[in-house]
Design a protein around this nucleic acid. Structure first.
Lengths: 350, 350
DNA sequence: GACTTTCTTGACAACGATGTCTGATCGTTA
DNA sequence: TAACGATCAGACATCGTTGTCAAGAAAGTC
């Protein structure tokens, strides 16, 4: 009886086996090996088995990149993903959803972090294009993506996420930033607040501008003059936000409700409120959900985005483009959602 | 005067330009173009300029993968990274540190999520190898990595992170899990606790077993019998942990201090404690730091890992191996750190 | 001015795979 | 039995690049 363990194991060569080796061992031509691997028709079952045995014996693995050189359409079965930072949870969720959708098609994902640096954006895109990715999914930070026009006109599939492109036309998948921020505003107004404040991110980021616009329009639309409403922009980290919130809350006529336009700004604001002991008296609604928001005291009311849906949708669009969809580019909107947890339902002092 | 805007723009061909096109436009041979691009010696300055102009005019971009076919050493300038999940913050930090270190060398990173699925581990590794990555950095989940022996003996650079490999010898970068868990135990003992409990992750994960061992050894070493100590394993998500903690805290003789071996377990435990209103009476130390741990009430004392250091170290090892380092494989240990925030300093009731 | 030496340069094969095309083998049919 | 189509298989060129090598031009040497 022959068992697995006494089957002949070929010595492992230091160089990786190629189709030529497999073909030689199986006693067939390399094209036949190629046919077997790619499940092409026209190989007898007996030959197929010989080839499969040789593949197993040599531990052969197809070189996808070499194949892509000749293959029709030149598919490399890899795509590039550019995120603000792979260490940011929001980006991580998008990445994960995208990976799952593309992985099902055998597509691997290159991921990279932009760090809000336009130069880095261009460098990473160049690096990915140099590896001939089949498509790009990206959160643009540069003011303008006109430098991508050459690729665009070569029909490179591209999907922009979170922010819309400027200077090229392409599909985009974004949260309804203005609407979401408007929801936050109307929620606070409905709870009786008239003294609101806005704490926002860098204004060179499109989403930040949208959130600000949505918030202020909703407040203005309710008849509250926005000229006197404190609007503090360019808060990009927790500490800056904390200091701004402290100053705001210590001012002569402090707001009774604050809207923070982004996670880190929300964290900084929470810290400032707790330091001053007003976290149960001043209302807070933050844009972006976060882990343990419900475990805070009070729970933090947020406008939640749906990164996984953004990821799924962008994968869907990218695959459609890769498969030859020639529709005019569109922007897809993923709705945000208000989640009440306490901090946004605090009423102003009577 | 000639400005940028009236310079001749060639029509964008639908097909990507190759070296041949550049060579033709510059009036040189393709090898000369290759030399210019790779900064090889032996090209006169005048020729160099002609080539660079042609490259700019055609918007030419080198095909790295085609080059790797012929290049000595076959470097593809890409590596594969396998993480528990790219959406997990701990993984994200590692990814980021790695990306930065490798990006500086022009190496792009394929990232993928394992989801604790051994089959997926093998499939992803196969996918990456099929793209001829120059190396792998991975958190193994399969019980055994013997299936990688062929690659290993082909000298594929590999670095294991967070968990050590079984069945192959390779560099590993891990947290001092047992020591860290021991620190948690001695911290709780020092604060007067004798009735401790351990809530742990799946025992098929090496790190979970290490943490458990370190915790119990420290407790036992202090003369407290561990046989009666509640040890609940296989808690892999927040809800399971919450239920286990509830049961534990509702038992006849509840512990006065709990050690949770992982983030999600810590979250579930925090929830259970808050539900029962004992979060200020029962001590808690969790393994793994997390955002806003200091904002909880009380702040959560943790054994913090240093994912960014793990990422940096593993990048360093991977590059060393890629550069030909033939040292015997080693395990590098990144120390954990106890961070006191309140929950771990609660004393038992008198 | 003849001969080296050095510097530039391009022709060509090769990397590992796939597309095209042609040839061999087989069973079937008139 | 000859002709035919279907099936199976391999030879060969090719994808975009780099390594090898040899040739031609320029510069230096006596």
């Amino acid at each position: 009886m022959t068992t697995m363990s006494d089957r002949y194991q070929p010595p492992l060569s230091p160089t990786r086996p190629t189709m030529r080796h497999v073909a030689a061992l199986a006693g067939v031509g390399i094209k036949t090996v190629s046919r077997v691997i790619n499940d092409e028709a026209g190989v007898s079952e007996a030959t197929r088995q010989k080839v499969l045995d040789a593949i197993a014996q040599l531990n052969y693995q197809l070189d996808v990149t070499a194949g892509s050189l000749r293959r029709a359409g030149r598919r490399t079965l890899s795509v590039g993903l550019l995120l603000p930072s792979v260490s940011n949870p929001f980006s991580g969720e998008i990445h994960r959803a995208l990976e799952d959708a593309l992985g099902a098609r055998g597509i691997a994902v290159f991921a990279a972090s932009l760090d809000d640096d336009p130069k880095r954006e261009q460098a990473i895109i160049a690096a990915f294009l140099g590896r001939r990715v089949d498509g790009l999914v990206l959160t643009p930070i540069a003011k303008n993506q006109a430098y991508m026009i050459p690729e665009h006109s070569r029909n490179l599939p591209m999907v922009f996420i979170d922010r819309e492109p400027v200077g090229v036309e392409a599909d985009a998948v974004v949260t309804d930033n203005a609407v979401g921020a408007g929801k936050a505003a109307s929620h606070l107004l409905r709870h009786g607040h008239t003294k609101l404040a806005y704490l926002g991110d860098r204004t060179d980021i499109q989403t930040a501008r949208e959130r600000r616009r949505g918030f202020l329009e909703e407040v203005g639309g309710a008849g509250i003059p926005t000229s006197a409403l404190p609007v503090i922009d360019d808060l990009h980290d927790e500490e800056a936000a904390r200091r701004a919130a402290l100053e705001l809350l210590n001012s002569e006529d402090p707001p009774t409700a604050i809207f923070s336009s982004q996670n880190l700004v929300t964290f900084g604001t929470m810290r400032a409120m707790k330091e001053l002991g007003v976290h149960k008296r001043v209302a807070l609604v933050g844009f972006d959900d976060f882990t343990l928001a419900d475990m805070m005291d009070p729970g933090i009311t947020v406008i939640a985005q749906h990164p996984e849906r953004i990821g799924v949708k962008s994968a869907e669009r990218l695959l459609a483009r890769i498969d030859g969809d020639e529709q005019a580019p569109r922007t897809y909107i993923v709705p945000s959602e208000l989640i009440q947890r306490g901090s946004g339902e605090i009423r102003p002092p009577a």
